[in-house]
Design a protein around this nucleic acid. Structure first.
Length: 187
DNA sequence: AAGAGGATCAACCGCGGCTTG
DNA sequence: GCAAGCCGCGGTTGATCCTCT
């Protein structure tokens, strides 16, 4: 029960970023088995990888799986994440099952780097999804309007519609999020 | 042009829970 | 019923990239 010694603690097991060769070996091994991984613990040895099974599983599920959708989250996906989070909390794996092609890790990262900050800017507690008291709010002018919309919407409601002001825009040249369309605080 | 600080995201760590003998 | 083994999850870290001054 509980925690068991992890193969990651074995001396000589490689850690850190994966190389192209390692990716190739992992993908080829899994494809050779018809997509059936079998035992993750035994996989590294079978695939000729000097990695622990845990690391292989993570790399496969978060990056190498053929059905993974990469790139920016759509507004629709973002809305869905917020709605699901309001009902499920930090159950990233469960939330990920509702977003085809997205991984729990990707959603978790996106939440922590984008959505969480956006909610705070709107004056909404990202944990409880309740409106924060004014003194704990650092929202801007547009965020205040969005927060009003938020407050008017039922908590954890699938009907929640974000105000246009809080939509994300993207840099057309690099496809990375460029900036929030919300104006900076008028100071 | 260069350095500082912030943002992003791949990967790691440790734990809980399920399965198996 | 119990213990060991393994998998999957959530939190966190750290390297890299980007933006601002």
């Amino acid at each position: 029960m509980g925690r068991s010694p992890c193969c990651c603690h074995d001396a000589g097991v490689k850690k850190g970023p994966w190389t192209e060769e390692e990716d190739k070996a992992l993908v080829e091994h899994i494809q050779k088995r018809g997509g059936n991984v079998g035992s993750w613990r035994g996989l590294p040895k079978a695939a000729g990888l000097n990695r622990c099974g845990k690391s292989c599983r993570l790399r496969w599920t978060n990056y190498l799986r053929p059905d993974i959708k990469r790139g920016n989250f759509s507004d629709e996906e973002e809305r869905l994440i917020i709605t699901l989070h309001a009902g499920l909390g930090n159950k990233w794996a469960t939330i990920a099952t509702h977003l085809k092609g997205r991984t729990d890790n990707e959603i978790k990262n996106y939440w922590n780097t984008h959505i969480r900050k956006k909610l705070l800017r709107m004056g909404v507690d990202p944990v409880t999804h309740q409106q924060l008291p004014p003194d704990q709010t650092n929202h801007d002018v547009n965020g205040a309007a969005a927060a009003l919309l938020w407050a008017a919407a039922p908590r954890a409601s699938a009907a929640w519609i974000p105000a246009p002001s809080c939509r994300r825009s993207f840099c057309s040249s690099c496809s990375r999020p460029s900036a929030l369309t919300t104006a900076p605080p008028a100071s």
